[in-house]
Design a protein around this nucleic acid. Structure first.
Length: 251
DNA sequence: CTGAAAAGGTCATACG
DNA sequence: CGTATGACCTTTTCAG
């Protein structure tokens, strides 16, 4: 045909073949199967001899059925399809999570794995340092107000800003660990982000306390700091807040 | 906003 | 004479 310079349905074609292909797909025409072994060679001169083989060739050279159905790259349609795909995807994910949550054994295993992978203070990891501290004790002069295993620095800092920055520097890795832990809990990632933040805000401190449990040695009544130094329980008796916390941990 | 690209639509007409 | 064809037209989307 003439005017064969345009792209139609993903392939270079003439107006004739374009129209033929569109009609064929739109009207879902089933052409009579080719009588000649379905092997007709379609050339410009004989292209209308066999509709069956003509359509076959259209598809063979790559004309897209979908392009006929949806028009020219419709942006809204594309977004709709994408949204549908994601919703199907989300639904299947949700299904998988529900199935997992239904199986207590799997849930427990997943939580334990998440904890082991993200917690830096498990008994296994702390044991060597604790052993070292027991055999060769070294006691920190950490000020009572900063009583925490994450706070090994013996020298008090000056200035509010410096203190806050130091605090966040020490806690960030541990908090990141808790966040990572939460992300690995079955179903957590499927929650709305807003809810994830709310849950983390509400629970991060308590989770952190539980995670640090291994740092409190009831046998020697001491708290192990990350730098390997120890802090005696009695050393905190002067601070009301810290003492309350320490007592809670040891009792 | 404009014009190119690519999709759908129209309808005189060729052909069986 | 009915219908499939295809040249031409309209619409829609998007890059520049």
């Amino acid at each position: 045909g003439t005017r064969g310079s345009s792209r139609d349905y993903g392939v270079h074609s003439c107006e004739g073949c374009k129209g033929f292909f569109r009609r064929s797909i739109q009207q879902k025409i089933q052409y009579r199967p080719c009588t000649k072994n379905q092997q007709c060679s379609i050339l410009r001169i004989n292209r209308n001899r066999c509709q069956y083989c003509k359509l076959k060739k259209c598809i063979a050279v790559g004309m897209s059925r979908d392009a006929v159905r949806f028009g020219r790259v419709p942006k809204r349609e594309k977004a709709k399809i994408l949204a549908a795909m994601q919703s199907v995807n989300a639904r299947s994910q949700e299904k998988a999570v529900l199935a997992e949550l239904d199986d207590d054994t799997r849930v427990t295993a997943a939580i334990i794995r998440a904890h082991m992978d993200t917690c830096g203070f498990t008994r296994d990891k702390v044991a060597p340092m604790l052993q070292q501290a027991r055999t060769n004790p070294s006691y920190t002069q950490c000020p009572p107000t900063l009583a925490c295993p994450l706070n090994p620095r013996p020298v008090p800092l000056h200035g509010q800003q410096e203190l806050v920055q130091d605090f966040s520097e020490r806690f960030s890795p541990a908090i990141r660990g808790v966040v990572e832990f939460a992300k690995r809990l079955p179903g957590f990632q499927q929650l709305p982000q807003e809810d994830q933040v709310t849950l983390l805000k509400a629970g991060v401190f308590e989770v952190l306390l539980v995670r640090l449990a291994a740092m409190f040695d009831a046998r020697t009544n001491t708290m192990l700091c990350l730098n390997g130094q120890l802090l005696r329980r009695e050393a905190l008796h002067t601070s009301v807040n810290a003492r309350f916390l320490m007592d809670s941990m040891f009792d």
